[in-house]
Design a protein around this nucleic acid. Sequence first.
DNA 1: GATATTATCTCGCCGAGCGAGATAATAGAG
DNA 2: CTCTATTATCTCGCTCGGCGAGATAATATC
Lengths: 149, 149
Amino acid sequence: MSEQGSEMEIVHLLRKVTVEFGLRQAEFASRHGMHPTDVRALICLLDAERAGTDATAGWLGAQLGLNSAGTTAVIDRLERLGHLTRGRDPRDRRRVLLAVDPRAVELGWAFFGPLIENTVTVLRDFDESETAAVRRFLSAAHRAVTAIP
Amino acid sequence: MSEQGSEMEIVHLLRKVTVEFGLRQAEFASRHGMHPTDVRALICLLDAERAGTDATAGWLGAQLGLNSAGTTAVIDRLERLGHLTRGRDPRDRRRVLLAVDPRAVELGWAFFGPLIENTVTVLRDFDESETAAVRRFLSAAHRAVTAIP
DNA sequence: GATATTATCTCGCCGAGCGAGATAATAGAG
DNA sequence: CTCTATTATCTCGCTCGGCGAGATAATATC
């Protein structure tokens, strides 16, 4: 508990960023008639797309920590808003493959783009070792937060 | 949209940390019979304590983006669990001052302590300019995320 | 072909959070 | 010093996200 040194300051800073980012997501959500969970769902789906992974309903539910009923509800909402399309997997026709609509992506960029731009801009002034330090720190934080105790 | 360079990689890394951290909070919450909002409330209250700010009901609601009804509900839940005590402000007796119970703090440390330790440990190997870089990056990210468009 | 397994969906319920309005304390105008 | 406006919090009724349980449909196993 003894707050010693600037290390804790950095941790607090990181935590503040995560909290504030969560609020931004919520703001984006309500501004577009969605709920925070829906936004997190879209983010997961875009990550899957980028990684080339198949995004099924069950997979999405697991990512979001929802049960099947809740997962269906999220997908229903996103489909109703046109941000998403369901499609049966031809290989395994029990599975539902999810595809994000390009317009949903644009919507996200309109909101988060400037925010990302600002963050990226700072990095341009960083030299090699500085960006490496940031990357190293974030990787460590990610590992620390992902580890399952 | 043109994902160029390692800058975007860092942004994605940061986002992953925030998302994963959110899931940890949710896990901590359900493990102690709380909801994510309740945990965020406790975090806000501890931040206020650390900063020496008076934590009133209204202030908390603003931090969490809740309206007054929801704020009252959060405080009720936390009070019922014994994580919190209400007290009237003697200076302005309309205001309700909130105080976090020390045992709630311990509870949080038992869960998040190791996680924080791991993160801090990495920083110990960083030299002056590297920690400065991390701090500068996170400050920028915080500003970017806090700016109200 | 009968059965077990897997992936998703439907139904009924609980409770978090909202809007509207009540209550209580303080601040200001005259 | 009283009457009114303002501020801080709380109460009530409601909506809807998410859960548990169970239904349905497609696939895998024997």
